[in-house]
Design a protein around this nucleic acid. Sequence first.
DNA 1: GGTATTTTCGAAAACGTTTTCGATTTTTAT
DNA 2: ATAAAAATCGAAAACGTTTTCGAAAATACC
Lengths: 340, 340
Amino acid sequence: MKEATLKQIAETLGISITTVSKALKNYPDVSDKTRKAVHELADSLQYKPNSFAVNLRMQESRTIGVIIPELVHHFFSSVIDGIVAEAEKHGYLVIIQQSNESVVMEKSQVELLLNKRVDGIVMSLSNESNDDEHLKELLRRNVPFVQFDKISKLLNSSKVIIDDQKAACEATTHLIHKGCKKIAHIRGPVNPQNAIDRFLGYKKGLEKHDIPFDPSLVYTCSRVSFEEGKAFAAQILKEHPDVDGIFCITDLVAVGVLAYFNEQKIPVPQQVKVIGFSNWFMSQVITPSLSTVEQPSYEMGTAAFNVLLEEINARKENRVREPKTVRLETQIIERESTRG
Amino acid sequence: MKEATLKQIAETLGISITTVSKALKNYPDVSDKTRKAVHELADSLQYKPNSFAVNLRMQESRTIGVIIPELVHHFFSSVIDGIVAEAEKHGYLVIIQQSNESVVMEKSQVELLLNKRVDGIVMSLSNESNDDEHLKELLRRNVPFVQFDKISKLLNSSKVIIDDQKAACEATTHLIHKGCKKIAHIRGPVNPQNAIDRFLGYKKGLEKHDIPFDPSLVYTCSRVSFEEGKAFAAQILKEHPDVDGIFCITDLVAVGVLAYFNEQKIPVPQQVKVIGFSNWFMSQVITPSLSTVEQPSYEMGTAAFNVLLEEINARKENRVREPKTVRLETQIIERESTRG
DNA sequence: GGTATTTTCGAAAACGTTTTCGATTTTTAT
DNA sequence: ATAAAAATCGAAAACGTTTTCGAAAATACC
């Protein structure tokens, strides 16, 4: 069962392909009579333009690529949600690739997307992305490109981010306002800008309130997991029994911490207060519910697509365009884990 | 900055496009000398075949479409994870669409994917999918198509599913073995096959152990949410204070139930035992941890892609092929909420 | 009726590839 | 040296569209 083509319609109607094409796109230089005839036949044959032919002719795909470290994270799937919804509004399709936190994968996926001639790429970097070559290549080849969340600061592309440093500073300040005097920080891996900025924000929050920074209170995750949260909670309690506040790089880690405290019957928030980052769904559901930093993930998605669209359109109109950085607002959400 | 084409290579080398094309694909009828020359130039120009031209010529896209109700669910993002990984292995790209549980959306997305000439579609139905027309149309047009998880039984397509009825029966049996005498069921909406089968499984589990079925112990969700779980827990306790077991359509609902019991200091599992379905990440993390039915989501993804690939290849070779149903194994996971 | 204008149409090129088939050249066999 | 066989190449068609530009037909004007 073949798909209908312009040629078929033209032949059965005894007119030229050109006229059929114009009729369907309502060009002014085709008579009402033929226009109607064409439309009717096209409808009855369920004619759909062959997108390959269109793309080939038009030199655009109306498709964008998205590369993320891992799909199975509430944050990322929510961002994608936003991207897909916004893309659909503008008639774009979204191809999703996940790097599984590997730069090698990331590179081959950029390749793949370029081969598929996507109109643009939005991307959140894998943790081990210290190798920038494939990204620089994107800029060199002038392909529309926006980074979000986990970005490379040095790369002069458009970006959609939150102010991690500010948010982390606010989270730390929140703990201090709640009376914490000795605050530990479970930070993310060394590389990602994210982890660095949140760490710096933590430090700044302490300084602002004249609490001396103690490097031994900083614990570094390698995989940012529930299990690490649990393990570090135990370690913190052993090394610094008088800690009364913990700021975690992410809710998942914080939930691990809470799980350990629950097991050990350490009262939260009475003895230790805990705050996470990202406002994952489960954070409001666990006991005690977890205070956190709300990160507007869906909005990051829509923003990322819109910035990408601007980049794409600028290219189309041959405009030069400075990369643009969109910074989204975050918000402290107070729940039981820091209450009182 | 234009992409390199066969024509460019041909011209600078003073040979024909044909030969360049053949050289690159290592056809036997091109001399080693020219083959090498072509490869070298192609590499240095970073030549990539224009996929639109290839697709147009080849009449295939090496792209598949996936339609799911919602991305932001651990189950679905994990399935997609599996699909994408398996697709990548076979050189296929994946376009993701979400119906947001709306049939109208679902229809327009099927349209979109067909317009994009995807080689096949894998799909999990939205809850309100009692309207099958767009799916029947897929079968009529003979496009490779596999359903997974939320399927329409009546539709004669390939399928990747679990045995919901059997799994639900096992979950109910688990509660009974743990000593439950009066078991409530919080079921899903009326339409989805899923919800129906799990309900039937619940009923069968009771029958098998000679526990009379009491319709007033069945509560029907409309949105399958945390909030509904909480609300139904309250209602159950009021209407049937002696209930000692609850089987929930999904972990999310079960977590809602547990949250209410926590608030009301109802001891779980001592007074009431609770079991969920799907083994969401958070189920092992909350207190008390939740017993559940493990559903192999990632494997469903890989299986779905592989069945789709079989369908695609059958079409290519003009084979007729009976739709195939893959049934994946589930497993009861015992945790604190049914322990003891 | 003749010219000027407007309306309506279609030929053709282009997008970049793949593949068939015939032509040309080179090699081998006699 | 000549015929046969093998190796190497390229012209051309095809995939299905879009768009330019010129031609033809219809209409308007005087």
